[in-house]
Amino acid sequence: MKRIDCPWCGPRAENEFTWGGEAHIVRPGLSCGDGQWRDYLFTRSNPRGAHQERWCHTYGCAQWFHVARDTLTHRIERVYAIDEGPVDATG
């Protein structure tokens, strides 16, 4: 049972949270092509390793935030605010 550090509530068990998928995906406008829309809806990096994603502390403060997590080890590298942009992978 993983612990996730909610920025507001501190470390809580994973079953208090809802995962929101890959982060930093930009929604295209109405005039985009079918391929671009497809990528927005469905295409994902799905990496084995460093991943940036969104989480919501549903059974707590109900706030959304970002998490940089390793999908193989599950180690959370950092938790950052929902209004922060993507973390440079090399940084």
């Binding site: 998928g21 497809r38 990528d39 469905f42 295409t43 994902r44 990096s45 799905n46 990496p47 084995r48 999908t71």
Partner: peptide, 18 residues
């Protein structure tokens, strides 16, 4: 489950979540 890992080596991204 490793399809995206190999796809990435081919320069592809897939509509898959593992």
């Amino acid at each position: 489950g490793h399809s995206s890992v190999l796809a990435e080596k081919l320069g592809l991204r897939l509509p898959i979540t593992s």
